[in-house]
Structures are given as structure tokens and as C-alpha cells.
Write a protein that binds this DNA or RNA. Sequence first.
DNA 1: ATAGCGCCCTGGTGGC
DNA 2: TGCCACCAGGGCGCTA
Length: 284
Amino acid sequence: MPELPEVETVRRQLAEALPGRTVVDVAVSLPRTLQNATPEELRAFVVGRAFADVGRRGKYLLLSLHDGRANGAATAGDHRQLVVHLRMTGRLTVIEAAAPLPPHTRVVFSLDDGRQLRFADVRTFGTIHLVGRGKQGPRGLQELGPEPLDDGFTPEALAAAVRSRRAPVKTVLLDQRRVAGLGNIYVDEALHMAGIHPQRPALQLTGDELARLHAAVRAVLREAVEQGGTTIRDYVDGNGVPGGFQRRLRVYGRAGEACPCCGGPIERLRVAGRGTHVCPRCQR
DNA sequence: ATAGCGCCCTGGTGGC
DNA sequence: TGCCACCAGGGCGCTA
């Protein structure tokens, strides 16, 4: 499941491959992937334009386009962007156009270097929004909380996000309006690293616990980015390669196995409707 | 405002 | 072997 580290890994690879490449064709085989446009509108939006910066906010990928003219400068007032969310099983890869088209390919952008940017998605939850030319991006993007790896994300910023929430701390951390980019895997990992039980009401956390949680969130995300993300089943990066962080998981998907800290059995429960992995001895 | 829940969707899994 | 119920879960819309 792509969360911040997986999306960031894909972003870095797309940032190598896409800038300067002009879109020469686009094919849509699952129109509802496009949340606010028809396939025809997407075509008019991108064909003849060139990709520019590849950005990320939370779990959203931001693919900017400029007008593709000689100097490469964006035309003032005509900023166009594709906003992609991979959700559960979305994949965004760049590959030679001659490579076999895998099943569940939903949208294909043909580029001027003989390669293609392909969006594939088994479960069809993934989304693409157009932004610019009167098109609005997803609401979730506008309401996104702070980036946890930014310098501005201090322990105080986490405390502010969590303050006065009665909900379980896991629920709050999963809320993208509070902190951007965390999903089920890294929330479980960070809470274990911080020694905090996922069901603790967020407003109960002490200053010391918030400081530990802040450090744990950043540490786990940084290490996961270094490892190229986590592959449980579906995730691959922009080159089709799985991540490596699954080897470093402490609790996620390890119910019944030994806790790396105390050796006791890891338990599985449900919090916020999500499968949740916890060491009841280490996490209070 | 907030919290909880169902829905979307498909492939893999496990039980019989 | 075949069948089927069940599970994974991010974001969103709905309800209380």
C-alpha cells in the first residue's frame, strides 16, 4: 500500500524520467480513474505538453506540465498539473513503449522518447485529477496536514495536530488533515517504536510521549524512504522494482511473531476499522 | 465540529 | 478440484 515513503520513491524516479518529455499520446481504458475529466479532456490537457517538476504532498503525486515550447518556461496563468493518488494498488511506471502491457493498465501516456508513463491499478481505487484550466484538484489535497519530514514538522507541530482529540492516537495519525502521508503500515511501526498503544486517546499523551512519537514517525519514514518503501503484495516503484522496508518491519504483518524489543508475541486487533499490530508489553 | 461506519473494488486465501 | 465467504484498506460520504 503506497504511503509517503512509497510515493516519495516513485516521485524520485519519475523526476528522473519525466521532466522535458513531451506527451505525444494518451490512452484511457478505465475512464473513471479520471475524477474530474473525460478521456477527451485529458487528451486536450496533456498532448503536446511536456512534463516539468514532479512533486509530492502527502500521498499525492503532483505532475506539472508546461507548454512544451523551446525555452521550457511555464506559460504564465496556464499552469497545468496531474494529481495522482495510488490508493491501494496503483502503480505508476515509466517503461519502453514496446514492453508488454500488463493487465489492469488504466491510463497510458506515450512520451516523445519512445517510452510510456503507465498507470496500472488492480483494484481501481487510484485516482487522477486535472488541475488548471478551471479544473480543481481533490479536496483531500487542499485539506492536507503538515509534511512529517519537513523541517517545520516539530514536536510542537505534532502536539498541535493531536491536541484535544479524544479519538485513538492511531485514528488521529491516519487522518491526513492532521499529518500528511501516514497509512496503516507506518502508523503501526511508529507507535511501536514510540512505545505507545494505538488505542490510547490522543489527548492523553504526555509531552514526553509526543516527543517520542514525533521522533519515531520521522525515523520510520526516513528509513523507509532509504529502503525504497515497503512491498507487502502489490507495490513497485517507478521502475517496477519492489521496496525493501518489509524486511525491517517491527510489528506490521507479524502477528504471533516475537516482538523485536521484548520477545513477547505481537498481537493483532482492530482500531479505526484497520488491522492493527501491537506489542502489548512494549506499548502502553 | 467530531467520530464512526459503510462503500468502492479485485485477487488471494482458506475452509469444506 | 471447485466453490465461496472473507479479507486487505484510503478517502469519501453519510449519519448521529
